[in-house]
Design a protein around this nucleic acid. Structure first.
Length: 123
DNA sequence: ATGCTGACGTCGC
DNA sequence: CGCGACGCCAGCA
C-alpha cells in the first residue's frame, strides 16, 4: 500500500516549512543548493519543488536567507526573484561570500550540506 | 480534475 | 567542455 511511503517526514510539516527550516539553519557566510535541501528532505529529485518553495518563501516567511540557497553550480539563479536584482549578491557579499558574475566563488568550500550538518536529534 | 509553470538536476550530444 | 532536452515534485490557474 505505502508504495512511496512519504515524501516528507512523518511530521505534519508542510514541504515549504521543512525547506524554510533548513534555509534558516544555514550559517552566515555559507551556502547550499536546492538539491541538497531536497535530498535532506528525502527527495533529491524535488529540487524544483524546493525552488518553488523559495519562490513563495516571501509569502510564508519574510526573513529568510534565501540568498544562501543557490543551484548546484553555485549560481545565483534566483537573484532575479529578489526585490533588487543585486540584493542577493549584495547580501552574500556582506557575509563575506564572493560572487562574480552570479557565480559564487569557492562555492565548494562554502557549501553547507544540511543532511551532513543538520542532525535530526530529537526534533 | 487536468495541465502548465518553475529560484533544479542529470543525461545526452 | 558547453549547450540542449527531458524528468522530477509541488503549487496554482
Amino acid at each position: 500500500m505505502l508504495k512511496k511511503e512519504t515524501k516528507l517526514n512523518e511530521r505534519n510539516e508542510d514541504f515549504f516549512e521543512a525547506v524554510y527550516q533548513v534555509v534558516r539553519l544555514i550559517p552566515k557566510g555559507r551556502v547550499t543548493s536546492y538539491g541538497a535541501i531536497a535530498a535532506f528532505l528525502g527527495s533529491k529529485q524535488s529540487a524544483r519543488a524546493v525552488g518553488w518553495a523559495m519562490n513563495a518563501s516571501h509569502r510564508h516567511q519574510e526573513n529568510l536567507p534565501a540568498h544562501r540557497v543557490v543551484n548546484r553550480i553555485g549560481m545565483l539563479s534566483g537573484k532575479h526573484h529578489f526585490a533588487q536584482d543585486n540584493s542577493m549578491q549584495n547580501r552574500l557579499a556582506s557575509e563575506g561570500v564572493v560572487v562574480l558574475d552570479n557565480q559564487i566563488q569557492q562555492f565548494e568550500k562554502l557549501f553547507w550540506d544540511p543532511s551532513k550538518e543538520i542532525k535530526l536529534d530529537g526534533y
